[in-house]
Computed example of a mutant assay.
Amino acid sequence: MWSRLRRSINGHLWLLGLWLLCASDVQARQALFAAMYDAPPFIMARSTVTSESDAEGIDWELLQELASRSGIDIYPLRYPLGRALKDVGSGKMDIITGLTLQMANQYQLGHLEQPYYQCHVRFYATAALAPKIHRYQDLSGKIIGHVRGADYFHTFDQDRSLRKSAVNHLHQLPGKLLRQYNQLIIAQDCQMDYLLAKLGLQQRIQPTRYDPGIPVSLYVGYSRQTLSASTVSRLNQALRDMLAEGWLQQVADSYIHPLSSPVTPALP
């Protein structure tokens, strides 16, 4: 009798220990939610209904690899940029990709130590108008399409004399330009060049002669309210390794090579 009771107790203790081990593993595995706005080739809607997700792109793959290397589950959700910034700032979402330092300062967001990509701000117009835009003053009087919530460069962002027309998604801008709702587009070249190439519009919509010469470094941003220092440290280490190994460059090249160049990884 006592031996059967002892075996029964030992069996239950073994099951309790196994349950506690599994429970601690589940508890240790964090889950973060990432707000990602449409910005080809960083985030793009998939055209197939058989895919595992409804999006693809550089940022999509970046977050999957960050999750794998850091041991932190990351669930990306597609958002309009303006709402994404607000929700990460308020702590409703945890992470955002494609963050600039201006956005981080405006919405009081944290960001990982190193940028993962670099673009440049450019203006675009129809092939007939693009050669006539030589300087900043030539923007006056033109309706300029831009993505709501995006920052481009200080002079433009603060200039209230310019006529600006906001949209929620980048892919809306070429159509509005061709339908003459706008005369100009302002965008990051690595995004707009890719989009125009995919749409076959490189001959109809072109960069203007005026080039602000503004580089834009892109960061993975995060909510200061929801991410702990240890979580940020794990993500930072994962990103450093990815940059040092050239992993991000290979992914970027597979999407947009040779339209733009990735950030050179910082030396250890």
Rank of each mutant, 00 (worst) to 15 (best):
L184I: 03
Y136N: 02
I186C: 01
R204Q: 15
S233A: 15
K92Y: 09
D193H: 12
R234N: 07
V88W: 05
P262C: 11
P115A: 05
S90M: 04
I144D: 02
P265N: 10
R240K: 13
N236R: 08
Y152P: 05
W60S: 08
L81A: 09
F153R: 09
M1L: 07
Q102Y: 01
S254C: 07
L18E: 03
I214A: 08
Y124A: 02
W14R: 14
A130C: 06
I96E: 03
K198I: 00
I185H: 04
A35Y: 02
N10R: 15
Q191S: 15
D25C: 13
F123L: 09
L5G: 00
Y194N: 11
S217N: 15
S254A: 15
G82H: 03
L235E: 06
P265K: 06
W19N: 01
T231R: 12
G149P: 05
P80F: 01
P174F: 10
V49S: 13
S223H: 10
M103L: 08
A45I: 00
R6P: 00
L178H: 04
H171M: 10
L32P: 04
L178C: 06
G221M: 08
Q188N: 11
M242L: 15
Q188H: 10
Q191T: 13
Q27W: 14
P212I: 03
P80L: 01
A84C: 02
V49Y: 00
Q106Y: 10
S217T: 12
L112A: 06
I72S: 04
L32M: 08
Q202P: 02
D189W: 05
A84Y: 04
L16A: 13
R163E: 07
Q188A: 11
Q30Y: 00
Q237I: 10
V232P: 10
M44V: 05
P76L: 08
Q249D: 13
D211H: 02
L199M: 13
N236S: 07
Q188T: 05
D38A: 11
L99C: 04
D38Q: 13
I186N: 01
S68E: 13
R179T: 13
V121Q: 10
N168P: 03
V49H: 04
V49I: 06
Q191E: 15
A104T: 02
G82I: 09
R46P: 00
E65A: 14
R29N: 03
W19H: 01
R179P: 02
G141S: 07
F123I: 04
V220F: 12
I205C: 03
A125W: 01
S161Y: 02
P41N: 09
R234P: 04
H120N: 14
N105Q: 13
Y124R: 03
S24H: 12
R4I: 03
A150V: 09
G149Y: 08
W14K: 12
G141W: 01
D193Y: 04
H169P: 01
Y219G: 11
L227D: 12
K176E: 15
H169V: 07
V26S: 11
E56Q: 12
L16R: 02
M192L: 15
Y37H: 15
Y219V: 11
S223K: 12
R209A: 05
F156Y: 14
Y181G: 00
R234C: 03
T100C: 08
F153P: 11
L15T: 07
Q64T: 11
A187N: 07
S165R: 11
K142H: 12
F123D: 02
L101S: 09
A130N: 07
I185L: 11
L85Y: 05
I58G: 13
L32R: 08
L15C: 05
